[in-house]
């Protein structure tokens, strides 16, 4: 499923003293199979954008009382926002949002806050029971088991345990299992590693790579951590003040250090090292992952000697 957004705009509390433009004419395409990163400060519009992807925020044209803006004479015709996710056209009123949500899984920030059931099994099965009303018990069980195992938990040991008795890292895995249990084609995660210790972070990122491909074709992560983006993503979009400033692979994006600094954003450590080496007259050609940087540096030496 490809995600194609064109001219998306969104204003919170329109017409009130708190009105705030969250999205301003955003266009972006995310191809099937990408591990896509979304970067930006709090309030840059990235969360609002992401909430559009499974219809939690709806386009005006998909709502009941929508009236088409009329073209005025002598003025360019008004831009019509559109958003397509695979075969779903989210600008249409007839879209099956239910079906869409099954295909686009969404893991919110601190997803452990959504846990509610008495047992881990019940919590993970919640989405499945909502989406697949006619599923047989055996099938449900098999799907839940697979989901719990793929996030790296021991099914037999945790299935009957209360999710509230687990450790922080385990809770987060259960919450993720509860989203991926329906095998969504696109998995969107808002700051999946937030608040975890460094080891927990590494494990979560490893889990996402495990899921990417076989389990969910496309993974989209929202992240503040440039190292995380450089290390994991095939491409990343930079949001600032409701607009997309760049949408590039990390290899090209992090060459724009000055521009990113000007937006108040950081660059990954490897990019900082590249700049420091450049000052000393050394060019390094890498895609900004740690391994490729180390390789590039070591290769320099090999080439020289």
């Amino acid at each position: 499923m490809t995600i194609t957004a064109e001219h998306l705009s969104y204003v919170y509390h329109p017409g009130s003293p708190f009105a705030a433009k969250a999205l301003d004419d955003v266009s972006l395409t995310i191809e099937e199979g990408e591990f896509f990163g979304i970067i930006g400060h709090t309030g840059s519009g990235k969360s609002t954008f992401v909430k559009h992807l499974n219809g939690l925020i709806r386009l005006p044209s998909s709502q009941k009382h929508y009236k088409k803006p009329k073209a005025k004479k002598g003025m360019p015709s008004p831009v019509v926002p559109s958003l397509k996710v695979g075969e779903y056209d989210l600008s249409s009123r007839k879209t099956d949002f239910y079906g869409l949500r099954k295909k686009v899984g969404m893991v919110f920030q601190y997803p452990e806050a959504q846990l509610f059931a008495e047992t881990v099994f019940e919590d993970v099965a919640f989405g499945l029971k909502n989406f697949e009303r006619d599923m047989k018990e055996k099938e449900t069980e098999a799907a839940v088991k697979a989901a719990i195992e793929v996030v790296g938990l021991d099914y037999a040991a945790v299935k009957d345990v209360s999710p509230f008795d687990l450790s922080g890292g385990q809770k987060r895995r259960v919450a993720i299992a509860g989203v991926i249990v329906t095998k969504p084609e696109i998995l969107v995660l808002d700051e999946p590693a937030a608040g975890l210790d460094p080891l927990g972070k590494k494990e979560i990122m490893a889990l996402l790579h495990r899921l990417h491909g076989d389990w969910c074709k496309t993974v989209v992560i929202v992240s503040h951590d440039m190292d995380e983006i450089a290390e994991n993503c095939t491409r990343a979009a930079v949001f600032s003040e409701g607009k997309i400033v760049y949408a590039l692979p990390p290899k090209e994006l992090f060459l724009k250090a000055d521009e990113l600094f000007a937006l108040g954003l950081d660059i990954p450590l490897t990019a900082k090292l590249r700049l420091a080496l450049l000052k000393r007259g050394i060019e390094t050609d890498c895609d900004f992952t740690v391994d490729s940087f180390v390789d590039a540096v070591l290769k320099k030496r090999g080439g020289a000697s």
């Binding site: 090292l273 000052k279 540096v297």
Partner: peptide, 23 residues
Amino acid sequence: KLQAGGMNVPDTLDVEILAEAIA
């Protein structure tokens, strides 16, 4: 990782020092 690759760099936590050592 650089040390493991046989490069003579110190353990440092400073970008400039590391870059200088690599250079």
